[in-house]
Computed example of a mutant assay.
Amino acid sequence: MLVELWQRTFTVVAQATEDWMEQAFVKRGRGMVETIYPDPEERKRLYDYGYSPHVGRRFEEIAAAMLLLLQEAAGYGTMQPEERLGVFVALGEMVADDGGYGFSVRDTEMGRTLYGNWHAVLRWWMGVPGAEGPEPRDLRAWQIFTSDNFEFRLGVAIGAVVARAWTQGAGDALATPTIDTWKATTGLPWFAFWAKELLRWGTLDPFVAFALSLGIAKSRPEAEVMRGRYIAWLNDELILWDGEDQIDPSNLLAWSRTLTIQQADAPRRAPIAAALSGTDGRAGRYAVIPVRSGERIRWLDASGFRLAVSETPEGYPRSPRQSDDYDLVIEGRNVSVVHQF
């Protein structure tokens, strides 16, 4: 009975086909290199694009045109919104219709409608002034379409072209891109550096994308208001500058450091003494939320459990902002709450 049982196990079946499976594996692998993709340079290009080889071969037909369009966007920094949008529309039209790397169309009436009207959806997503948005009931469908097709599929296509340009310029497969070397290595204007981030944040303005990504601003309108401060900084620091200087990441980073210095000069709030209540403090540090109760503050975790209490220090706001970050810190017998942000 045991012998008969053994004969029906997966091990026996696998052993019987092991030699055939090994030969098939080797033959298929050699066939990929020797017959289907015999050109080493082509294999390298297809690898750089990041698509499956079959899709990559089709993408290669439009990659050169996308690269040329990215190169021609050197004046993006000073373009008006309609002209900026036109660059993204042109890029989108290059990829939209392909069944592999192109836009994804859901098999629903709304999905087909959005695909047929994707220019208007892109206009809304990128925040072009006066663009018409969706009805409230359609908002979710519009968001899904933008995420699937603009942020992901179009973003991946642009990223593939930029990655290939970097690889060709660097010469070293292990070289790591840096802001200092990116432009000279790729031979592309700064728009190509920002294109994916602009699609991700839904804005035509690299400054807005930068401010949102660093948390300097919490919304696109708030970031747009801050742009004037950055332009004033450019006028003071560079005096003469052009569109490329305006969206140069090194300039944006230098400007952001001036904000950090201003914040560092502000007096830091002193730690608030606290007593544990509901935890033994073995983790050492906990993210907590303040809730005032009379003259005391209850420090709660994200689940609403009370971890500590403290007397309300002088000058503490009666209604603390829930967006502020506090940490409950336990160091030996010392228990305090630190205002992180």
Rank of each mutant, 00 (worst) to 15 (best):
V128C: 05
P129G: 02
A131T: 07
A131M: 08
G133Q: 09
P134M: 01
P136T: 08
Q143G: 03
I144M: 05
F145W: 02
T146E: 06
S147K: 09
D148C: 10
N149T: 12
F150C: 07
F152G: 05
F152K: 07
G155F: 10
G155R: 04
V156C: 07
I158Q: 00
R164S: 11
A165M: 05
W166Y: 15
W166Q: 12
Q168K: 11
Q168M: 15
A170E: 13
A170N: 14
A170Y: 15
D172P: 11
D172Y: 09
L174K: 10
L174T: 12
P177C: 12
T178V: 15
I179R: 07
I179P: 04
I179E: 07
D180A: 08
T181S: 07
K183Y: 09
A184W: 13
T185M: 12
T185E: 13
T185K: 13
T186K: 08
W190I: 05
F191E: 00
F191H: 03
F191C: 05
K196S: 08
L198A: 01
L198K: 00
G202V: 12
L204S: 05
P206H: 06
P206L: 10
P206K: 08
A209N: 09
F210N: 06
F210V: 08
A211E: 08
L214H: 04
G215F: 09
I216L: 09
A217E: 08
S219H: 14
R220M: 09
E222H: 14
E224M: 14
V225I: 14
Y230L: 15
